[in-house]
């Protein structure tokens, strides 16, 4: 099949970018979207044009490295699918395909379709963990976890940190991403001791990174390749309110042992 691509090209973080038209010829319908870009890139290089830079790694939908807003939809038109698992049979011969990077102030573009998602790491560093030293924790079966809680926690834990939620949201809000971690750890007994501190810190960091706010449109859920439910955002909201209500003002002069 033949297609016409409209691709965002940008030299580096500082330069101005623009949409460029690139033709894709003889693309196999069975190739993945990224393999289509590989093919186009080979052709570009033959004609002396630098290939299109795009992030990708595992190409099996789990590493969260691939991105791309395809015809206005993060990861393209297929529901619950990352770009690397999207296949060209989802497109028509002769179709015009717009390919753009994630667009958010907090995700600066590094080159072409590659953005810097370091903000996501910093949000996790703010509190997305259980403080446990490596050594001799108690036996894994010491604390039974009700299956429904474990399953729900897992539903949130499948987040691959790709950033599609931010890309899909008209406010560039990462609520689904943040909520997935808050929700996972608040559902498990291991995460409970730090639940207040965690949710406050992660929500604060989200704002500090320059992301927008949630307006409950659920575009994130619709775009999420792992089909994470906005129910987790509600849980985070509850956690936040609870934590804010219980939070104590720091006392002064009580340091030491």
């Amino acid at each position: 099949m033949d297609i016409t691509l409209h691709v965002w090209r940008q030299k580096n973080a500082k330069s101005q970018g623009k949409m460029e038209v690139i033709e894709g010829k003889n693309i196999s319908e069975d190739s993945s979207f990224l393999e289509m870009l590989d093919t186009v890139n080979e052709t570009l290089q033959e004609s002396g044009v630098e290939p299109i830079a795009f992030d990708h790694d595992c190409r099996e939908g789990i590493c969260g490295m691939c991105s791309l807003v395809i015809n206005g939809e993060p990861h393209g038109p297929e529901y619950g699918t990352t770009t690397c698992q999207l296949h060209m049979r989802s497109f028509k011969n002769g179709q015009h395909i717009f390919i753009e990077p994630w667009r958010a102030k907090a995700f600066p573009i590094l080159r072409d379709l590659i953005v810097d998602r370091g903000a996501f790491d910093r949000i996790q560093q703010a509190g997305g963990f259980v403080s446990v030293n490596v050594g001799s924790p108690q036996d894994a079966n010491c604390i039974p976890v009700p299956k429904q809680d474990a399953d729900k926690a897992f539903d949130a834990a499948v987040c691959i940190g790709c950033g599609a939620c931010v890309a899909a949201c008209k406010n560039a809000s990462p609520m689904l991403f943040v909520a997935a971690k808050v929700s996972q750890l608040s559902l498990l007994p291991q995460g409970k001791p730090e639940r207040e501190k965690r949710v406050l810190a992660m929500v604060d960091q989200m704002k500090a990174e320059g992301f927008g706010n949630c307006t409950n449109q659920y575009e994130c859920e619709a775009a999420c390749p792992k089909e994470i439910s906005v129910e987790h955002i509600a849980r985070m909201n509850r956690e936040y309110f609870r934590a804010a209500a219980l939070e104590e003002s720091p006392k002064e002069g009580h340091g030491g042992e």
Binding site: G72, E100, R103, K170, N171, G212, N213, Q217, Y218, A222
Partner: peptide, 20 residues
């Protein structure tokens, strides 16, 4: 205002998946 600032450059191809 915060929301607008969070996406300074709009998409060339604007689309909505399901939002009302």
């Amino acid at each position: 205002i915060e929301n607008k600032a969070a996406r300074p450059v709009p998409y060339a191809y604007e689309a909505t998946i399901q939002a009302t």
